[in-house]
Design a protein around this nucleic acid. Structure first.
Lengths: 217, 217
DNA sequence: ATAAAAATTTAGACTACCCTAAATTTTTAG
DNA sequence: CTAAAAATTTAGGGTAGTCTAAATTTTTAT
């Protein structure tokens, strides 16, 4: 079995590898795990010994197939629990991340299977992120960032890249919810902010910073 | 905050203090926590420093008010999660203990509150154990052991003292479920086994060992 | 009452994970 | 191309929780 801490490192390596494509650096991991680079190096040696990562000193790190399988299993659990917390317990989508961080480490295959069934085999978590399959594959989505949409296009809000409470509360406040159909009316040439119209007919101003964190279809 | 391990010790001290009335011994704790007496001594010093237990060397241990409050909070979480696992996810009552051992340590008051609401404020867990109140009181039940019931009496099965898979599967097999009304027909003078009649009319033989672990009303 | 047995505590050590400071390697800038 | 900067690793050490073996205290049995 792998420790709570090992699981968190694997998950973090997966995220960083997919964010900035390619190898993951020690410093990036230290920042994400809120530890120091020296501690990361210790753990990388340990994960490499267990064949969960490919690791050459000073060269960055990459998950092995087994490491990726484990990472996706943990992400699957995290996202299923987020669905539970929002859909069944009525938490807001901005309140569930921390709790799911703990729930994802509960060790029981049977529990995850039954939870999945209970929730009706959801495909996406409350932030629109796809839920990895039981077999350990991450579904492809093909979403674009709202910041890359041309003026005049109509698109559907599918997911958020940023999960902070402040960002999510801001979206709630602007009546921007997932599934929401928006039409891009204007793109400001200077600051790249966009003016969109939502289904209710209301116009909503979205800064470039926000638009970069919204995924659409 | 208190560690996972500290929480387990507090819970275990509570159980043992209520099982064999009075002070809890180092060895009993070592057996229950599957560690060695020396490790228990270390932890007792730590819990005493934190004012969670009353502890005098060589004299056994007792929870302080604060320690008992924490222990009951953990037991409350454990039992609520067991209700969830059985009622919502469809686990058998013999399968939920280990998983609830992990879930009980998830740190979120809000989670427990919402779970309680979601489950409809249950009073008892799937084994018939009362669920401590949010304020940290253990409800009194006044149950007797089936082994103490007189011949001729009709009683209702309310709870089990033993939680092992084998014991619970045996009860399932004998069609002895909680809430089941049973009439004690005969008490064997030699081995104290009892012959009871259940609602379906069927007679069920119950050994003294089993009867001692069944609580009735 | 006291010696043997049982229970408990202390001493010293181990692992997992984390840290700071110093050393080393890689990257970058001039 | 090389010196400075940045990134990374190594060295040495800390805490939490565990262990074994030895020392100490309490209990039990004669």
């Amino acid at each position: 079995m792998h420790s709570f801490t090992e699981e968190n490192y694997l998950k973090t390596i997966y995220y960083l590898a997919n964010r900035r494509q390619g190898e993951v650096s020690t410093n990036a991991l230290a920042e994400m795990t809120a530890t120091k680079a020296a501690s990361v190096t210790d753990m990388l040696r340990k994960l490499a010994d267990k064949q969960l990562i490919h690791y050459k000193k000073y060269q960055g790190v990459r998950l092995t197939d087994e490491g990726e399988r484990l990472a996706l299993q943990i992400i699957r659990r995290h996202r299923l629990w987020e669905v539970f917390l929002v859909q069944k317990l009525g938490f807001g989508w901005d309140e569930v991340h921390e709790i799911a961080e703990e729930l994802e480490h509960i060790r029981s295959e049977e529990l995850v299977t039954r939870l999945d069934t209970y929730l009706g085999y959801p495909q996406f978590d409350p932030h629109g992120d796809p839920i990895p399959t039981p077999a350990g594959k991450m579904p492809e989505t093909g979403y674009r960032k709202l910041s890359e949409v041309e003026a005049g296009e109509g698109v559907c809000l599918m997911a958020v890249l940023e999960h902070s409470t402040e960002f999510l509360k801001h979206l709630d406040h602007s009546q921007l919810t997932l599934g929401c159909v928006v039409t891009v009316n204007e793109i400001n040439a200077f600051d790249k902010s966009v003016l969109v119209q939502i289904a209710s007919g209301r116009s909503v101003f979205i800064s470039h910073e926000v638009a970069r964190n919204l995924l659409v279809n």
